[in-house]
Protein backbone atom coordinates (compact mmCIF):
# COMPACT_ATOMS: atom_id res chain seq x y z
CA UNK A 1 0.00 0.00 0.00
CA UNK A 2 1.01 3.59 -0.48
CA UNK A 3 1.32 5.84 2.53
CA UNK A 4 0.28 9.45 2.42
CA UNK A 5 2.36 12.22 3.93
CA UNK A 6 -0.33 12.60 6.57
CA UNK A 7 -0.06 8.93 7.52
CA UNK A 8 3.72 9.23 7.80
CA UNK A 9 3.28 12.20 10.13
CA UNK A 10 0.68 10.36 12.20
CA UNK A 11 2.95 7.34 12.60
CA UNK A 12 5.91 9.57 13.48
CA UNK A 13 3.80 11.15 16.17
CA UNK A 14 2.78 7.77 17.59
CA UNK A 15 6.45 6.75 17.55
CA UNK A 16 7.61 10.07 19.04
CA UNK A 17 10.03 10.82 16.21
CA UNK A 18 10.55 14.37 14.98
CA UNK A 19 11.02 14.12 11.21
CA UNK A 20 12.43 16.72 8.85
CA UNK A 21 10.42 17.43 5.68
CA UNK A 22 13.06 15.49 3.75
CA UNK A 23 12.68 12.51 6.03
CA UNK A 24 8.92 12.62 5.65
CA UNK A 25 9.27 12.48 1.87
CA UNK A 26 11.90 9.74 1.97
CA UNK A 27 9.97 7.60 4.43
CA UNK A 28 6.79 8.07 2.44
CA UNK A 29 8.48 6.53 -0.60
CA UNK A 30 10.55 3.89 1.16
CA UNK A 31 7.82 2.68 3.50
CA UNK A 32 5.36 2.55 0.61
CA UNK A 33 7.80 0.41 -1.38
CA UNK A 34 8.35 -1.91 1.56
CA UNK A 35 4.61 -2.18 2.24
CA UNK A 36 4.02 -2.96 -1.44
CA UNK A 37 6.46 -5.84 -1.14
CA UNK A 38 4.92 -6.97 2.12
CA UNK A 39 1.37 -6.84 0.79
CA UNK A 40 1.87 -10.26 -0.81
CA UNK A 41 1.06 -11.65 2.65
CA UNK A 42 -2.57 -10.90 1.86
CA UNK A 43 -2.45 -13.68 -0.72
CA UNK A 44 -1.62 -16.37 1.83
CA UNK A 45 -4.55 -18.43 3.02
CA UNK A 46 -3.85 -18.36 6.69
CA UNK A 47 -7.07 -17.63 8.50
CA UNK A 48 -7.35 -20.84 10.48
CA UNK A 49 -3.73 -21.63 11.09
CA UNK A 50 -2.93 -19.67 14.21
CA UNK A 51 -1.74 -21.99 16.95
CA UNK A 52 -0.86 -20.80 20.43
CA UNK A 53 2.78 -21.58 21.17
CA UNK A 54 3.33 -24.02 23.99
CA UNK A 55 3.81 -22.22 27.26
CA UNK A 56 5.66 -23.26 30.34
CA UNK A 57 3.22 -25.09 32.55
CA UNK A 58 2.35 -24.56 36.17
CA UNK A 59 2.74 -21.86 38.78
CA UNK A 60 5.68 -23.74 40.30
CA UNK A 61 7.88 -22.59 37.41
CA UNK A 62 7.36 -18.92 38.20
CA UNK A 63 9.59 -16.73 40.36
CA UNK A 64 9.27 -16.86 44.13
CA UNK A 65 8.04 -13.68 45.77
CA UNK A 66 11.25 -12.54 47.45
CA UNK A 67 13.04 -9.21 47.33
CA UNK A 68 16.32 -9.35 45.44
CA UNK A 69 18.21 -7.42 42.80
CA UNK A 70 17.56 -3.82 43.86
CA UNK A 71 20.40 -1.80 42.37
CA UNK A 72 20.38 1.21 44.70
CA UNK A 73 19.77 4.80 43.72
CA UNK A 74 23.36 5.47 42.68
CA UNK A 75 23.41 2.76 40.01
CA UNK A 76 19.81 3.51 39.05
CA UNK A 77 20.66 7.14 38.28
CA UNK A 78 24.21 6.63 36.97
CA UNK A 79 23.28 6.95 33.28
CA UNK A 80 20.57 9.59 33.72
CA UNK A 81 20.82 12.77 31.62
CA UNK A 82 19.42 14.86 34.50
CA UNK A 83 18.87 14.10 38.15
CA UNK A 84 17.30 15.93 41.09
CA UNK A 85 17.85 14.31 44.46
CA UNK A 86 17.40 10.65 43.71
CA UNK A 87 14.79 11.28 41.01
CA UNK A 88 15.10 11.46 37.25
CA UNK A 89 14.40 15.03 36.20
CA UNK A 90 12.60 16.09 33.03
CA UNK A 91 10.99 19.30 31.77
CA UNK A 92 7.77 20.06 33.60
CA UNK A 93 4.86 17.93 32.46
CA UNK A 94 1.57 19.78 32.34
CA UNK A 95 -1.63 17.82 32.72
Amino acid sequence: MKLTEQQVLHVAKLARLALTPDEVATFKNQLSAILDAVDELARVDSATTLVAPAGSEGLALLRQDVVQGEVGTEAALANAPQVAGTSFAIPKVLE
Binding site: R63, V66, V67, Q68, G69, E70, V71, G72, T73, A76, L77, G85, T86, S87, F88
Partner: peptide
Amino acid sequence: GASTSFGGAPNAHTSVVCL
Protein backbone atom coordinates in the same frame (compact mmCIF):
# COMPACT_ATOMS: atom_id res chain seq x y z
CA GLY B 1 12.66 -8.74 42.63
CA ALA B 2 12.52 -5.09 43.69
CA SER B 3 10.51 -4.42 46.83
CA THR B 4 6.92 -3.16 46.71
CA SER B 5 7.22 -1.43 50.07
CA PHE B 6 6.05 2.15 50.42
CA GLY B 7 8.48 4.85 51.45
CA GLY B 8 12.21 4.98 50.90
CA ALA B 9 14.02 7.54 48.75
CA PRO B 10 12.75 7.96 45.18
CA ASN B 11 14.05 5.08 43.03
CA ALA B 12 15.43 3.17 46.03
CA HIS B 13 13.18 0.23 45.24
CA THR B 14 14.25 -0.35 41.66
CA SER B 15 16.03 -3.13 39.83
CA VAL B 16 17.44 -3.07 36.32
CA VAL B 17 14.12 -4.60 35.22
CA CYS B 18 11.83 -1.93 36.65
CA LEU B 19 14.17 0.80 35.37
